[in-house]
Simulated assay, not measured.
Amino acid sequence: MNKVILFNKPFGVLSQFTDKGSADSPRPTLSAFIDAPGFYPAGRLDRDSEGLLVLTDNGALQARIANPRQKMPKTYLVQVEGRPDADALEALRRGVTLKDGPTRPADVRQIDAPDDLWPRDPPVRFRKSVPDAWLEIVLREGRNRQVRRMTAHVGLPTLRLIRTAIGPWRLNQLRPGAWRFAAESGP
């Protein structure tokens, strides 16, 4: 049976096991948290994003999870700068046109600030004069920095981005830097 690892990637960690960047200032990678030979990330999560990263020891499963044609839903909690109005939310739901073309429609809803969220290190910048809000966004594609580009397109820059689910797998109560094995079909 194929094995799956669910990992809560902390802010600032690369979604790979080695850093091919500057040798002078190495950045933290998955190898600082996961010692499980033969596992590889199925998809990516930007260094400045947090949350669920799925790793597997099966190449076909890895491709199925990462392939945009599979339309596997990915759920994000997104803290944005500003207050979304009905037009901005509807634009995100319909899909917006970015430099690399139109996005697929997304499920988007405004939510209350999550009360069980861990603090981020470093903290999100806070400005008394600018309100913020939280959105839950479900995408069925995975372009580079897509959520950030979509929210910026409607005038709501992303302050914090946390992936909470990929297909059947959920972050649940997994704390930053922690991982656990899960079944191929989900938790």
Results as ranks from 00 to 15, higher is better:
Gly38Trp: 10
Lys99Gln: 14
Arg163Gln: 06
Pro105Gly: 09
Ser25Pro: 00
Ala106Tyr: 00
Asp100Trp: 06
Ala182Ile: 01
Leu98His: 07
Ser185Asp: 11
Ala88Gln: 12
Ala178Val: 04
Thr151Cys: 15
Pro123Trp: 12
Arg109Lys: 12
Lys99Cys: 05
Val130Phe: 02
Asp48Asn: 14
Gln16Thr: 08
Pro37Phe: 08
Val138Cys: 03
Arg145Leu: 05
Glu90Val: 11
Thr29Val: 10
Arg149Val: 04
Ser129Glu: 13
Glu90Tyr: 02
Arg127Asn: 14
Asp132Val: 14
Thr56Pro: 03
Ala42Pro: 07
Phe33His: 08
Ala66Thr: 08
Pro26Lys: 06
Arg47Gly: 01
Pro176Ser: 09
Trp118Ala: 14
Val130Thr: 15
Leu53Thr: 07
Gly12Leu: 04
Asp107Gln: 09
Leu45Trp: 03
Ile162Arg: 00
Thr97Glu: 15
Asp35Val: 07
Leu6Ser: 02
Asp57Cys: 11
Ala23Cys: 08
Phe181Cys: 00
Asn67Arg: 08
Ser185Ile: 05
Lys99Thr: 13
Val80Met: 09
Thr18Gly: 05
Ile34Ala: 04
Pro122Phe: 12
Thr18Arg: 11
Arg109Trp: 00
Pro122Lys: 12
Gln110Ala: 14
Glu50His: 06
Gly38Cys: 12
Pro157Ile: 11
Ala133Ile: 02
Val147Pro: 02
Asn8Met: 02
Ser25Leu: 12
Ala152Lys: 10
Arg180Cys: 13
Glu90Ala: 15
Asp115Val: 04
Thr56Arg: 06
Met150His: 06
Glu90Arg: 13
Ile34Arg: 02
Arg47Leu: 11
Val54Phe: 02
